[in-house]
Amino acid sequence: MSSKESQLKESRMEQLAGVFFALLSLLLYFVIIPWQIESVRGAHPSPRSFPEVIAALLFVLAICLFISGWCKRSRPNQKIFRMSQEEIRQSIITFLVMTGYTLLLYVLPYIPVTMAALGVLMWIYGQRKWWKLSLAMLILPPSIYMAFTSLLKLRLP
């Protein structure tokens, strides 16, 4: 496993998260809500009221989080958020495999695509025993297919 890892002090993380959520709340309040929710004249409370209140509350909380991070910045024994490059890589690969799996389901049938996705994921997670790989690939997808189509009467892609 790679020893390289990304680190983030708790104070730094809170400051960054505070800035992110503050920007998100401003974006929501001034751009997304007016763009995505029609205003209804004379309505009180209008369809925009509840999201606007939450966006305003999110802004206040984001500022609180930023201040909390700022106050902790010189504290000696802060929590450190660590994530190794291996972890990041594995998470991204898993997500990409699932994205590919979903895309393939638009054009190919369920069983072969699921067999392939299962095999790829097992391989990525370090499974090298061919009999375990083939057993899982041959048993699981057809069983799921049978259970959902025969018992639950669902039509799978």
């Binding site: 898993t94 699921t114 996705a117 994921l121 097992m122 997670y125 499974q127 375990k132 899982a136 959902f148």
Partner: peptide
């Protein structure tokens, strides 16, 4: 049970 067997199966169940 090995994680290399469990987590891919969980992924497949999540999707279905």
């Amino acid at each position: 049970l090995e994680g290399s067997l469990i987590y891919p199966a969980v992924c497949v169940f999540c999707l279905i």
